[in-house]
Measured scan of single mutants.
Amino acid sequence: MDPFVVLVLCLSCLLLLSIWRQSSGRGKLPPGPTPLPVIGNILQIDIKDVSKSLTNLSKIYGPVFTLYFGLERMVVLHGYEVVKEALIDLGEEFSGRGHFPLAERANRGFGIVFSNGKRWKEIRRFSLMTLRNFGMGKRSIEDRVQEEARCLVEELRKTKASPCDPTFILGCAPCNVICSIIFQKRFDYKDQQFLNLMEKLNENIRIVSTPWIQICNNFPTIIDYFPGTHNKLLKNLAFMESDILEKVKEHQESMDINNPRDFIDCFLIKMEKEKQNQQSEFTIENLVITAADLLGAGTETTSTTLRYALLLLLKHPEVTAKVQEEIERVIGRNRSPCMQDRGHMPYTDAVVHEVQRYIDLIPTSLPHAVTCDVKFRNYLIPKGTTILTSLTSVLHDNKEFPNPEMFDPRHFLDEGGNFKKSNYFMPFSAGKRICVGEGLARMELFLFLTFILQNFNLKSLIDPKDLDTTPVVNGFASVPPFYQLCFIPV
């Protein structure tokens, strides 16, 4: 058959498939802009700032609406009420993970971030239990974070109060905490193996944040037939998995079943207990991918939040002064901060919360999916439909947070200066898919920041009023603009 005829037939089939998918069930789905064949609503979305586009569309179609990214149908949730109703009140029905062709290629359905069903539930339950087990290797997770915080302070001392970009050092600290939990080992910041790991993690975040990856996920045929950065992403992930597998083999040879040292040991012990169960989800494949998931999810998000926190503290020296006064009063100079201190430091706690609220790190979270046909607000959402959640619409709700575009710790303080919780605080998402490392991340943010401010004054290279804190939105995360500062020993 003539190649031209084959091409026309293929394009015609794709067009018909697109029209059929977009028209099927439209009477039951939430409203939304009319999609174009094949490309859907992509032309109506700013790929570099999806969150802003969703906010604009919500003003037209309401808090629940339908979009098509290519052939992929998505239902968008915008605003606290619908997000709570879906992710919390109907948590089980909305607990699936959205379709990610690239991740599915890399992870093969294993791990904790992109798995679904029984596998996801069992691996998540085990990971939560293990991360909360403060007795691994007779050292609590808090001990590990405190140790890394001391190392971080010593690295900052080496800058000798000269101007520096904190990106690298602030990236090393949370990565080392995860390494300590998974591998029972922290690395020197100049260790070549550690630097290679950091390089792969950072490069992957840069790649994932590009519009090209959005295109690959919406048109998965590209993955096999086109060159691009997605190939580098898959190569980096394969490198990390190979490295983790080597460490798993080392653990198998040296493990003491009665004295687990780290996450890998705990997983291997669980595998041993379930070795007679042919349906067990505790396999080497799941261990390797879960460890890679924890490394990827637990490094860049925390380091970016820390980097943004220091920029905001530079911009608002009056806030920094209040935090340091609270540190001096509650902790002093002669001991290290600990998590028990947080309950006695409402202002510092409010500042950490406000940093996370203000920066809105992951504006749309990772997409969910419905696990069955769901009736939601008089609409029928078919099983498997991807759910896109606007966390921006919750964290920047102007009824809950007056002047949401302003950095103001009073958003989390009552009139008496006591810490005030808010149900709208969802930087880790909400419901059954809430970030498994939430507790660890909150511990790291509090301890790293208090250790830094206990030991250093922060000095800006320019007038604080002239510092730009506008986030650089890159399609996946909101990151701070480049800046330098000086760490002046107190």
Rank of each mutant, 00 (worst) to 15 (best):
M1T: 00
L7A: 12
L9Y: 10
S23W: 14
P30A: 03
D46M: 05
I47T: 14
K52L: 08
F65A: 02
L67Q: 00
R73Y: 05
V75K: 00
V75H: 00
V75T: 04
V76L: 02
G79F: 00
Y80V: 06
Y80G: 04
E81A: 11
E81G: 10
I88L: 12
G91S: 13
E93N: 13
R97Q: 06
P101F: 09
A103Y: 14
R105K: 12
G111R: 03
N116P: 02
K118I: 12
W120Q: 04
W120D: 02
K121T: 12
I123W: 02
I123N: 04
F134S: 13
K138M: 14
D143H: 10
Q146V: 14
C151L: 10
R157E: 12
R157A: 11
P166Y: 01
V177R: 01
C179S: 09
C179R: 05
C179V: 09
Q184H: 13
Y189P: 08
V208E: 07
S209Q: 14
C216T: 09
N217W: 09
K232M: 06
K247G: 07
K249H: 10
Q252T: 08
Q252A: 11
I257F: 12
D265G: 02
F267P: 01
F267N: 01
M271W: 06
Q276M: 14
Q276D: 12
E281I: 14
I284G: 05
N286R: 04
T290Q: 02
A291P: 00
L295P: 02
E300D: 10
S303A: 14
T305E: 02
R307M: 08
L312C: 07
H316M: 06
H316F: 10
V319T: 08
E325P: 01
E326V: 01
D341E: 03
A350Q: 01
V352I: 15
V355I: 12
L361D: 01
L366W: 06
H368L: 05
A369S: 12
T371F: 05
D373V: 02
T386P: 07
T389V: 14
S390H: 15
N398K: 06
F407K: 00
R410C: 11
L413M: 10
Y424E: 03
E438M: 09
A477F: 11
F487N: 00
